[in-house]
Design a protein around this nucleic acid. Structure first.
Length: 420
DNA sequence: TCTGGGGTCCTAGGACCC
DNA sequence: TCTGGGGTCCTAGGACCC
Protein backbone atom coordinates (compact mmCIF):
# COMPACT_ATOMS: atom_id res chain seq x y z
CA UNK A 1 0.00 0.00 0.00
CA UNK A 2 1.29 3.40 -0.93
CA UNK A 3 0.24 6.97 -1.43
CA UNK A 4 0.20 9.03 -4.62
CA UNK A 5 1.81 12.44 -4.50
CA UNK A 6 1.46 15.17 -7.08
CA UNK A 7 3.94 18.02 -7.33
CA UNK A 8 2.75 20.76 -9.63
CA UNK A 9 4.63 23.94 -10.51
CA UNK A 10 2.63 27.13 -9.99
CA UNK A 11 2.23 29.16 -13.19
CA UNK A 12 5.28 27.32 -14.48
CA UNK A 13 6.35 29.44 -17.48
CA UNK A 14 5.63 32.72 -15.74
CA UNK A 15 7.48 31.56 -12.62
CA UNK A 16 10.53 30.60 -14.68
CA UNK A 17 10.69 33.96 -16.40
CA UNK A 18 10.49 35.55 -12.99
CA UNK A 19 13.10 33.31 -11.44
CA UNK A 20 15.59 34.81 -13.88
CA UNK A 21 14.30 38.38 -13.89
CA UNK A 22 13.33 39.35 -10.37
CA UNK A 23 12.44 42.83 -11.55
CA UNK A 24 9.27 41.18 -12.92
CA UNK A 25 8.16 40.31 -9.38
CA UNK A 26 4.74 41.57 -8.44
CA UNK A 27 4.03 42.69 -12.00
CA UNK A 28 1.29 41.21 -14.14
CA UNK A 29 3.20 38.87 -16.44
CA UNK A 30 1.89 36.71 -19.25
CA UNK A 31 3.72 34.21 -21.44
CA UNK A 32 2.52 33.91 -25.03
CA UNK A 33 2.05 31.03 -27.46
CA UNK A 34 3.97 30.80 -30.73
CA UNK A 35 3.81 33.90 -32.93
CA UNK A 36 3.07 35.78 -29.70
CA UNK A 37 -0.54 34.78 -30.33
CA UNK A 38 -2.33 34.12 -27.09
CA UNK A 39 -1.73 33.75 -23.38
CA UNK A 40 -0.53 30.32 -22.23
CA UNK A 41 0.60 31.22 -18.70
CA UNK A 42 0.16 34.13 -16.31
CA UNK A 43 1.41 35.38 -12.99
CA UNK A 44 -1.02 35.71 -10.05
CA UNK A 45 -1.16 39.45 -10.72
CA UNK A 46 -2.31 38.79 -14.29
CA UNK A 47 -4.91 36.40 -12.93
CA UNK A 48 -6.09 39.19 -10.63
CA UNK A 49 -6.63 41.31 -13.74
CA UNK A 50 -8.94 38.51 -14.94
CA UNK A 51 -6.75 37.69 -17.94
CA UNK A 52 -7.84 34.20 -19.01
CA UNK A 53 -5.56 31.51 -20.42
CA UNK A 54 -6.04 31.29 -24.18
CA UNK A 55 -7.03 34.91 -24.82
CA UNK A 56 -5.29 36.59 -27.80
CA UNK A 57 -2.72 39.21 -26.86
CA UNK A 58 -4.36 42.01 -28.80
CA UNK A 59 -7.47 41.75 -26.64
CA UNK A 60 -5.63 42.34 -23.38
CA UNK A 61 -2.76 44.55 -24.45
CA UNK A 62 -4.49 47.72 -23.16
CA UNK A 63 -5.07 46.03 -19.82
CA UNK A 64 -1.41 45.11 -19.47
CA UNK A 65 -0.31 48.59 -20.51
CA UNK A 66 -2.59 50.21 -17.98
CA UNK A 67 -1.23 48.07 -15.13
CA UNK A 68 2.44 48.10 -16.08
CA UNK A 69 2.18 44.46 -17.14
CA UNK A 70 4.57 42.45 -19.33
CA UNK A 71 4.02 39.98 -22.16
CA UNK A 72 6.85 37.60 -23.07
CA UNK A 73 7.25 35.18 -25.95
CA UNK A 74 7.39 31.53 -24.93
CA UNK A 75 10.73 29.89 -24.61
CA UNK A 76 10.30 26.15 -24.60
CA UNK A 77 13.97 25.18 -24.62
CA UNK A 78 14.35 27.02 -21.34
CA UNK A 79 11.13 25.59 -19.90
CA UNK A 80 12.09 22.03 -20.84
CA UNK A 81 15.44 22.44 -19.16
CA UNK A 82 13.89 23.89 -16.01
CA UNK A 83 11.32 21.09 -16.00
CA UNK A 84 14.07 18.53 -15.91
CA UNK A 85 15.79 20.42 -13.08
CA UNK A 86 12.72 20.73 -10.91
CA UNK A 87 11.59 17.15 -11.45
CA UNK A 88 15.05 15.83 -10.60
CA UNK A 89 14.73 17.42 -7.15
CA UNK A 90 12.10 14.82 -6.25
CA UNK A 91 14.61 11.99 -6.61
CA UNK A 92 15.85 12.91 -3.15
CA UNK A 93 12.48 11.88 -1.71
CA UNK A 94 11.50 8.72 -3.58
CA UNK A 95 12.73 6.51 -6.43
CA UNK A 96 9.17 6.16 -7.79
CA UNK A 97 8.66 9.11 -10.10
CA UNK A 98 6.34 9.61 -13.06
CA UNK A 99 7.18 12.63 -15.21
CA UNK A 100 3.61 13.40 -16.14
CA UNK A 101 3.93 16.70 -17.96
CA UNK A 102 6.27 19.63 -18.28
CA UNK A 103 5.09 21.08 -14.97
CA UNK A 104 3.70 18.08 -13.06
CA UNK A 105 5.21 15.00 -11.43
CA UNK A 106 3.45 12.09 -9.77
CA UNK A 107 5.39 10.25 -7.09
CA UNK A 108 4.64 7.13 -5.09
CA UNK A 109 5.42 7.32 -1.39
CA UNK A 110 5.68 4.24 0.82
CA UNK A 111 2.98 4.10 3.47
CA UNK A 112 5.55 3.71 6.22
CA UNK A 113 6.44 7.37 5.87
CA UNK A 114 2.80 8.34 6.26
CA UNK A 115 3.26 10.04 9.57
CA UNK A 116 5.77 12.43 8.13
CA UNK A 117 4.02 12.83 4.79
CA UNK A 118 2.93 16.41 5.38
CA UNK A 119 6.40 17.28 6.56
CA UNK A 120 7.85 15.67 3.45
CA UNK A 121 5.48 17.68 1.28
CA UNK A 122 6.62 20.96 2.75
CA UNK A 123 10.23 19.88 2.44
CA UNK A 124 9.68 19.14 -1.27
CA UNK A 125 8.34 22.63 -1.76
CA UNK A 126 11.30 24.22 0.00
CA UNK A 127 13.84 22.20 -1.90
CA UNK A 128 12.41 22.82 -5.37
CA UNK A 129 12.11 26.50 -4.60
CA UNK A 130 15.66 26.72 -3.33
CA UNK A 131 17.21 24.83 -6.23
CA UNK A 132 15.19 26.22 -9.14
CA UNK A 133 13.41 29.34 -7.90
CA UNK A 134 10.08 27.86 -8.99
CA UNK A 135 7.17 27.66 -6.51
CA UNK A 136 5.31 24.32 -6.47
CA UNK A 137 2.24 22.91 -4.77
CA UNK A 138 2.02 19.40 -3.35
CA UNK A 139 -0.95 17.07 -2.92
CA UNK A 140 -1.15 13.57 -1.42
CA UNK A 141 -4.00 11.09 -1.66
CA UNK A 142 -4.92 7.48 -2.42
CA UNK A 143 -5.42 8.03 -6.18
CA UNK A 144 -4.21 10.38 -8.88
CA UNK A 145 -7.61 12.02 -9.24
CA UNK A 146 -7.77 12.66 -5.49
CA UNK A 147 -4.21 14.00 -5.53
CA UNK A 148 -5.41 16.45 -8.18
CA UNK A 149 -8.22 17.48 -5.81
CA UNK A 150 -5.64 17.96 -3.05
CA UNK A 151 -3.58 20.22 -5.32
CA UNK A 152 -6.67 22.27 -6.20
CA UNK A 153 -7.20 22.99 -2.53
CA UNK A 154 -3.49 23.52 -1.90
CA UNK A 155 -3.43 26.25 -4.54
CA UNK A 156 -6.56 28.01 -3.39
CA UNK A 157 -6.43 27.86 0.37
CA UNK A 158 -4.05 30.23 2.08
CA UNK A 159 -4.13 28.08 5.20
CA UNK A 160 -2.85 25.04 3.29
CA UNK A 161 0.41 26.80 2.55
CA UNK A 162 0.80 24.98 -0.75
CA UNK A 163 0.44 21.43 0.62
CA UNK A 164 -2.62 19.28 1.20
CA UNK A 165 -2.61 15.67 2.35
CA UNK A 166 -5.97 13.98 1.85
CA UNK A 167 -4.74 10.49 2.73
CA UNK A 168 -7.25 9.02 5.14
CA UNK A 169 -8.28 12.55 5.98
CA UNK A 170 -11.52 13.31 7.84
CA UNK A 171 -11.49 16.49 5.81
CA UNK A 172 -11.81 14.69 2.47
CA UNK A 173 -15.55 15.16 1.89
CA UNK A 174 -15.25 18.83 2.62
CA UNK A 175 -12.37 19.11 0.18
CA UNK A 176 -14.44 17.34 -2.48
CA UNK A 177 -17.37 19.65 -1.85
CA UNK A 178 -15.17 22.66 -2.39
CA UNK A 179 -14.03 21.65 -5.89
CA UNK A 180 -16.40 22.42 -8.77
CA UNK A 181 -17.02 19.50 -11.09
CA UNK A 182 -15.44 21.40 -13.99
CA UNK A 183 -12.16 21.35 -12.06
CA UNK A 184 -12.14 17.58 -11.62
CA UNK A 185 -9.42 15.86 -13.66
CA UNK A 186 -11.07 14.37 -16.74
CA UNK A 187 -14.20 16.54 -16.68
CA UNK A 188 -13.78 18.92 -19.60
CA UNK A 189 -16.25 21.41 -21.01
CA UNK A 190 -18.71 18.94 -22.45
CA UNK A 191 -18.79 16.56 -19.49
CA UNK A 192 -19.04 19.25 -16.84
CA UNK A 193 -21.91 20.92 -18.72
CA UNK A 194 -23.67 17.55 -18.87
CA UNK A 195 -23.07 16.91 -15.18
CA UNK A 196 -24.20 20.35 -14.10
CA UNK A 197 -27.38 20.02 -16.14
CA UNK A 198 -28.08 16.94 -14.08
CA UNK A 199 -27.44 18.52 -10.72
CA UNK A 200 -23.92 17.20 -10.25
CA UNK A 201 -22.04 20.35 -9.37
CA UNK A 202 -19.11 19.41 -7.16
CA UNK A 203 -16.51 16.66 -6.95
CA UNK A 204 -18.46 15.33 -3.96
CA UNK A 205 -21.68 15.11 -6.04
CA UNK A 206 -19.73 13.23 -8.69
CA UNK A 207 -18.24 10.80 -6.19
CA UNK A 208 -21.74 10.03 -4.91
CA UNK A 209 -23.30 9.80 -8.37
CA UNK A 210 -24.85 6.65 -9.80
CA UNK A 211 -22.01 4.84 -11.52
CA UNK A 212 -24.15 3.16 -14.15
CA UNK A 213 -25.64 6.47 -15.21
CA UNK A 214 -22.17 7.99 -15.41
CA UNK A 215 -20.89 5.06 -17.45
CA UNK A 216 -23.75 5.39 -19.91
CA UNK A 217 -23.22 9.12 -20.41
CA UNK A 218 -19.44 9.44 -20.00
CA UNK A 219 -18.24 5.96 -21.00
CA UNK A 220 -15.74 4.04 -18.89
CA UNK A 221 -13.71 7.23 -18.67
CA UNK A 222 -16.37 8.74 -16.41
CA UNK A 223 -16.78 5.54 -14.41
CA UNK A 224 -13.06 5.57 -13.71
CA UNK A 225 -13.21 9.15 -12.44
CA UNK A 226 -15.97 8.17 -9.99
CA UNK A 227 -13.98 5.17 -8.77
CA UNK A 228 -10.86 7.26 -8.34
CA UNK A 229 -12.80 9.85 -6.33
CA UNK A 230 -13.91 6.96 -4.10
CA UNK A 231 -10.28 6.12 -3.44
CA UNK A 232 -10.00 3.14 -5.81
CA UNK A 233 -7.02 3.35 -8.15
CA UNK A 234 -8.06 3.01 -11.80
CA UNK A 235 -5.48 5.27 -13.40
CA UNK A 236 -2.17 3.51 -12.93
CA UNK A 237 1.06 5.02 -11.70
CA UNK A 238 3.44 4.77 -14.65
CA UNK A 239 7.05 5.44 -13.75
CA UNK A 240 8.37 4.35 -17.16
CA UNK A 241 6.98 6.35 -20.05
CA UNK A 242 4.94 4.49 -22.64
CA UNK A 243 6.27 4.16 -26.14
CA UNK A 244 4.79 6.97 -28.22
CA UNK A 245 2.15 6.21 -30.81
CA UNK A 246 2.48 9.46 -32.68
CA UNK A 247 4.93 12.31 -33.18
CA UNK A 248 3.93 15.63 -34.65
CA UNK A 249 5.54 18.93 -35.55
CA UNK A 250 3.22 21.67 -36.71
CA UNK A 251 3.14 25.45 -36.61
CA UNK A 252 0.96 28.36 -37.44
CA UNK A 253 2.93 30.56 -39.79
CA UNK A 254 4.19 34.02 -38.92
CA UNK A 255 2.01 35.09 -41.82
CA UNK A 256 -0.08 33.09 -44.27
CA UNK A 257 1.37 32.11 -47.63
CA UNK A 258 0.19 30.86 -50.99
CA UNK A 259 3.61 30.10 -52.35
CA UNK A 260 4.45 26.45 -52.92
CA UNK A 261 8.08 27.38 -52.52
CA UNK A 262 7.38 28.69 -49.00
CA UNK A 263 5.28 25.67 -48.13
CA UNK A 264 7.99 23.29 -49.25
CA UNK A 265 10.48 25.07 -47.02
CA UNK A 266 8.07 24.86 -44.08
CA UNK A 267 7.31 21.18 -44.63
CA UNK A 268 11.03 20.44 -44.98
CA UNK A 269 11.64 22.19 -41.66
CA UNK A 270 8.83 20.27 -39.90
CA UNK A 271 10.06 16.98 -41.34
CA UNK A 272 13.61 17.56 -40.08
CA UNK A 273 12.30 18.39 -36.63
CA UNK A 274 9.96 15.44 -36.36
CA UNK A 275 12.67 13.10 -37.65
CA UNK A 276 15.01 14.42 -34.95
CA UNK A 277 12.35 13.62 -32.34
CA UNK A 278 11.96 10.18 -33.85
CA UNK A 279 15.67 9.43 -33.48
CA UNK A 280 15.73 10.93 -30.00
CA UNK A 281 13.09 8.39 -28.98
CA UNK A 282 14.88 5.62 -30.91
CA UNK A 283 11.82 4.95 -33.04
CA UNK A 284 11.05 4.23 -36.67
CA UNK A 285 7.94 5.52 -38.44
CA UNK A 286 5.78 3.48 -40.80
CA UNK A 287 3.45 6.26 -41.83
CA UNK A 288 3.79 9.96 -42.55
CA UNK A 289 1.03 12.55 -42.90
CA UNK A 290 1.20 16.11 -44.11
CA UNK A 291 -1.58 18.60 -43.46
CA UNK A 292 -2.26 22.21 -44.38
CA UNK A 293 -5.06 24.59 -43.60
CA UNK A 294 -6.08 28.19 -44.03
CA UNK A 295 -6.74 30.69 -41.23
CA UNK A 296 -10.03 29.70 -39.59
CA UNK A 297 -10.35 33.13 -37.96
CA UNK A 298 -10.19 34.99 -41.24
CA UNK A 299 -12.93 35.57 -43.74
CA UNK A 300 -10.99 34.13 -46.67
CA UNK A 301 -11.65 31.05 -48.84
CA UNK A 302 -11.11 28.12 -46.48
CA UNK A 303 -9.24 24.96 -47.33
CA UNK A 304 -7.93 22.07 -45.27
CA UNK A 305 -6.49 18.79 -46.41
CA UNK A 306 -4.10 16.06 -45.40
CA UNK A 307 -2.26 13.27 -47.14
CA UNK A 308 -1.09 9.98 -45.71
CA UNK A 309 1.86 8.09 -47.06
CA UNK A 310 3.28 4.78 -46.09
CA UNK A 311 6.95 4.64 -45.13
CA UNK A 312 8.27 1.29 -46.27
CA UNK A 313 10.50 0.07 -44.90
CA UNK A 314 10.04 1.97 -41.66
CA UNK A 315 12.60 4.70 -41.28
CA UNK A 316 14.07 7.41 -39.06
CA UNK A 317 16.17 9.03 -41.77
CA UNK A 318 15.38 12.63 -42.66
CA UNK A 319 16.70 11.89 -46.12
CA UNK A 320 14.10 9.16 -46.61
CA UNK A 321 11.21 10.96 -44.95
CA UNK A 322 11.70 14.30 -46.68
CA UNK A 323 10.83 13.19 -50.25
CA UNK A 324 7.69 11.51 -48.92
CA UNK A 325 6.64 14.64 -47.04
CA UNK A 326 7.13 16.76 -50.14
CA UNK A 327 5.10 14.27 -52.17
CA UNK A 328 2.37 14.58 -49.54
CA UNK A 329 2.50 18.35 -49.78
CA UNK A 330 2.11 18.20 -53.57
CA UNK A 331 -0.96 16.05 -53.07
CA UNK A 332 -2.67 18.51 -50.72
CA UNK A 333 -1.53 21.78 -52.27
CA UNK A 334 -4.13 23.85 -54.16
CA UNK A 335 -3.50 27.13 -55.88
CA UNK A 336 -5.27 30.19 -54.55
CA UNK A 337 -5.45 29.47 -50.84
CA UNK A 338 -3.60 31.38 -48.13
CA UNK A 339 -2.18 28.61 -45.96
CA UNK A 340 -1.78 29.59 -42.30
CA UNK A 341 -0.81 26.33 -40.69
CA UNK A 342 0.86 23.10 -41.72
CA UNK A 343 2.43 20.10 -40.06
CA UNK A 344 3.94 16.66 -40.37
CA UNK A 345 2.72 13.70 -38.31
CA UNK A 346 4.42 10.34 -37.95
CA UNK A 347 2.45 7.21 -37.04
CA UNK A 348 2.84 3.45 -36.91
CA UNK A 349 5.91 3.86 -34.71
CA UNK A 350 8.14 1.02 -33.64
CA UNK A 351 11.22 0.79 -31.45
CA UNK A 352 14.24 0.80 -33.75
CA UNK A 353 15.84 -2.08 -31.84
CA UNK A 354 12.82 -4.31 -32.44
CA UNK A 355 12.45 -3.61 -36.14
CA UNK A 356 13.50 -6.22 -38.70
CA UNK A 357 16.75 -5.67 -40.55
CA UNK A 358 16.54 -4.14 -43.98
CA UNK A 359 17.09 -6.52 -46.82
CA UNK A 360 17.96 -4.88 -50.10
CA UNK A 361 19.23 -1.42 -49.06
CA UNK A 362 20.88 -2.26 -45.76
CA UNK A 363 24.22 -0.70 -46.70
CA UNK A 364 22.65 2.59 -47.81
CA UNK A 365 20.55 2.77 -44.67
CA UNK A 366 23.66 2.23 -42.54
CA UNK A 367 25.15 5.29 -44.21
CA UNK A 368 22.00 7.29 -43.44
CA UNK A 369 22.16 6.19 -39.84
CA UNK A 370 25.74 7.31 -39.45
CA UNK A 371 25.08 10.61 -41.19
CA UNK A 372 22.00 11.33 -39.05
CA UNK A 373 23.96 10.43 -35.94
CA UNK A 374 26.61 13.00 -36.80
CA UNK A 375 24.04 15.67 -37.70
CA UNK A 376 22.14 15.15 -34.44
CA UNK A 377 25.33 15.25 -32.40
CA UNK A 378 26.42 18.52 -34.02
CA UNK A 379 23.01 20.10 -33.51
CA UNK A 380 22.97 19.10 -29.86
CA UNK A 381 26.46 20.40 -29.29
CA UNK A 382 26.34 23.63 -31.28
CA UNK A 383 22.64 24.46 -31.29
CA UNK A 384 19.62 23.70 -33.46
CA UNK A 385 20.08 24.04 -37.20
CA UNK A 386 23.85 24.08 -37.10
CA UNK A 387 23.58 21.39 -39.74
CA UNK A 388 20.43 20.93 -41.79
CA UNK A 389 19.24 19.87 -45.20
CA UNK A 390 20.30 22.79 -47.36
CA UNK A 391 17.83 22.42 -50.22
CA UNK A 392 15.30 24.72 -48.65
CA UNK A 393 15.57 28.19 -47.14
CA UNK A 394 15.23 28.32 -43.41
CA UNK A 395 13.35 31.58 -43.51
CA UNK A 396 10.19 32.95 -45.04
CA UNK A 397 6.73 34.19 -44.20
CA UNK A 398 5.99 30.87 -42.50
CA UNK A 399 8.65 31.30 -39.81
CA UNK A 400 7.26 31.63 -36.27
CA UNK A 401 7.67 35.06 -34.74
CA UNK A 402 9.04 35.59 -31.25
CA UNK A 403 9.35 39.29 -30.68
CA UNK A 404 9.27 39.37 -26.90
CA UNK A 405 11.66 36.66 -25.98
CA UNK A 406 13.74 36.53 -22.80
CA UNK A 407 17.31 35.16 -22.95
CA UNK A 408 18.04 31.39 -22.92
CA UNK A 409 19.51 31.62 -19.44
CA UNK A 410 20.30 27.96 -18.90
CA UNK A 411 20.66 26.40 -22.33
CA UNK A 412 22.90 28.74 -24.30
CA UNK A 413 26.38 29.78 -23.18
CA UNK A 414 26.06 33.04 -25.05
CA UNK A 415 23.01 34.00 -23.03
CA UNK A 416 24.11 33.24 -19.49
CA UNK A 417 23.08 35.70 -16.81
CA UNK A 418 25.63 38.33 -15.94
CA UNK A 419 26.25 39.48 -12.38
CA UNK A 420 27.18 43.10 -11.82
C1' DT B 1 -2.53 43.90 -37.67
C1' DC B 2 -2.97 40.28 -33.78
C1' DT B 3 -6.36 33.74 -32.06
C1' DG B 4 -0.68 27.58 -29.84
C1' DG B 5 1.21 22.91 -30.11
C1' DG B 6 1.46 18.12 -28.99
C1' DG B 7 -0.52 14.29 -27.27
C1' DT B 8 -4.01 10.12 -25.40
C1' DC B 9 -8.09 7.20 -25.08
C1' DC B 10 -12.83 5.55 -26.25
C1' DT B 11 -16.73 4.37 -29.24
C1' DA B 12 -19.63 3.41 -33.16
C1' DG B 13 -19.95 1.77 -37.48
C1' DG B 14 -18.31 -0.37 -41.66
C1' DA B 15 -15.57 -3.90 -44.06
C1' DC B 16 -14.33 -8.29 -44.10
C1' DC B 17 -13.83 -13.19 -42.78
C1' DC B 18 -15.49 -17.85 -41.82
C1' DT C 1 -41.35 -18.96 -48.14
C1' DC C 2 -36.66 -18.18 -46.79
C1' DT C 3 -32.27 -13.58 -45.68
C1' DG C 4 -27.09 -16.07 -39.51
C1' DG C 5 -23.95 -15.17 -36.20
C1' DG C 6 -19.75 -14.22 -34.34
C1' DG C 7 -15.44 -12.36 -34.59
C1' DT C 8 -11.60 -8.97 -35.91
C1' DC C 9 -9.69 -4.92 -37.69
C1' DC C 10 -9.74 -0.24 -39.11
C1' DT C 11 -11.21 4.50 -39.09
C1' DA C 12 -13.29 8.91 -38.03
C1' DG C 13 -14.87 11.66 -34.69
C1' DG C 14 -15.30 13.22 -30.11
C1' DA C 15 -13.70 13.93 -25.61
C1' DC C 16 -9.97 14.93 -22.68
C1' DC C 17 -5.07 16.41 -20.93
C1' DC C 18 -1.11 19.94 -20.31
Amino acid sequence: MSVIGLIDANNFYASIERAFAPELDRRALVVLSNNDGCVVARSPEARELKIPIGVPLFQIRHLLDRHNGVALSSHYTLYDDMSWRFQSCLEDFTPDIEHYSIDEVFVKMPLSSLRSLSETGHEMRRQVRALTGVPVSVGFAETKTLAKIAIEIAKKSTRANGMVNLTGSPYRDEALSRVAVENVWGCGRMYSALLERNGIKTALDLRNADEEWIRKRMTVVGARIVQELRGIQCIPFEPTPKVKQQLCVSRSFGSATESLHDLRAAVAFFTSRVAEKLREHRLLAGELSVFVHTDRFKDVPQYANSARLSVAPKSDSTLELLPLALKGLDAVHREGFQIRKAGVILNDLELADCAPRRLWDAALYELHKRLMGVVDALNIKFGKDTVRCGLFPNSGAWRTRFERRSPAYTTDWRQLMTAH
